[in-house]
């Protein structure tokens, strides 16, 4: 099997390509917009250094921003996703005794755990992303609706991808 670093680099590139060339053109009336690239951050190894995690989040965000022509927008959301991931794993892992697992995936952690993990973090990411895009408190209801619908869309796509490609590893 290919090692972890190569797998992550491959995932980084593939997800950007899919996001930018395919998913950028898909959306339901601007209400549900799929973003699959957070999967890269979700799937980073469990014991990754915090500085490495944030740097990778920053890199991911800025690459997406380059293609979407929105400097800083996805970067901000991605970096916050990094923070949420750290705290989610800190709180969630000890109770579930998954400490020995190398990376959080659908096969290693189980479908239920992964779905909750992906939904919570993706929702946080989408909410921040749409909130910063609107950038004012008055339209918070619209931001909320958008974030929920888009999370449904994105998490479905992420789970399908997990099952199709990286699910077979073990």
């Amino acid at each position: 099997m290919i090692n972890q670093t190569t797998a992550n680099i491959l995932r980084f590139v593939t997800l950007i390509i899919v996001q930018v060339f395919l998913l950028k053109n898909i959306g339901y009336y601007n209400l549900a917009v799929p973003f699959i690239y957070p999967l890269f951050i979700l799937r980073l190894p469990m014991r990754i250094q915090q500085i490495a995690l944030y740097t990778l989040c920053f890199l991911m965000g800025i690459s997406i921003d380059t293609f979407y022509n929105t400097p800083g927008l996805h970067t901000t959301a991605c970096v916050s996703l990094g923070l949420f991931r750290i705290y989610y794993l800190k709180i969630g892992i000890q109770q579930d005794k998954f400490e020995n697992e190398p990376e959080p995936g659908i096969k290693t952690m189980g479908a239920q755990w992964f779905l909750v993990y992906a939904s919570v973090l993706t929702f946080a990411h989408h909410f921040i992303l749409f909130f910063i895009e609107i950038f004012r408190l008055t339209d918070i209801g619209f931001v909320f609706t958008r974030a929920i619908l888009s999370t449904l869309f994105s998490v479905t796509l992420m789970s399908l991808t997990e099952l199709m490609f990286w699910g077979k590893k073990r």
Binding site: P71, G72, L73, T75
Partner: peptide
């Protein structure tokens, strides 16, 4: 608090990019 401090550092960079360029 390294997690949070690093977050603040990266987030402020990202936000300043956002506000300056859009």
């Amino acid at each position: 608090y390294s997690a949070f401090l690093l977050f603040l550092l990266f987030e402020s960079i990202a936000l300043s990019i956002l506000v300056i360029n859009n």
